[in-house]
Design a protein around this nucleic acid. Sequence first.
DNA 1: GAGTGCCG
DNA 2: GTAT
Length: 221
Amino acid sequence: MTFDLFDNLPEPDSRGGEHSEAIGPGAVVLRGFALSRALALRQAIEQVHAQAPFRHLVTPGGFRMSVAMTNCGTLGWVSDERGYRYDPNDPDSGRPWPAMPAVFVELAREAAAAAGYPGFVPDACLINRYTPGTRLSLHQDRNERDLHAPIVSVSLGLPAVFLFGGARRADRPARIRVAHGDIVVWGGPSRLFYHGIAPLADGDHPLLGTLRLNLTFRKAG
DNA sequence: GAGTGCCG
DNA sequence: GTAT
């Protein structure tokens, strides 16, 4: 007598291996959702980077973040010794953040709708660049004016372990592997849940080499 | 009004 | 794996 341990695994649907997994109340992972647009997304990120280079921000406590960041959209998330905030201008250049590429807006809109949040129109996109060893410890996204809108988080390049906790920092986070093309969407009851990224493992991705790039879409204003 | 930070 |  043998048991098939895989009997209860969710079956990918017919769209080229795409499927979704619930990870919490109002929270879902859309597997492979961004895959077909990965090349266009990489090109768009390069264009943003040309106008607003990646940089390592400093936390209010004075610590340099290991993740390098830039933004596009009408508002960008920034941190310095004075605190966290959304700013219409890049503090390094004094100029407005680059416009959000159309491929970004459309992907975020579609992903949110697929996760049960129709009508999502992001005005801020934080772009995070991870190299092996880089992490983002548990935190909440709560500087946005509109907490009704969800968070849409797109993974590109090297895989990572997404930590998805609860409403309190002490809630033990689930460890969810996120790969190239996956999108995590959370909102409603889980909008303020703590989350983070475990230290990135070494690796070499065919499209992005030794990098993980993450796009986080928000309605901040 | 602190905090997406570090360590063994 | 965890400890704050």
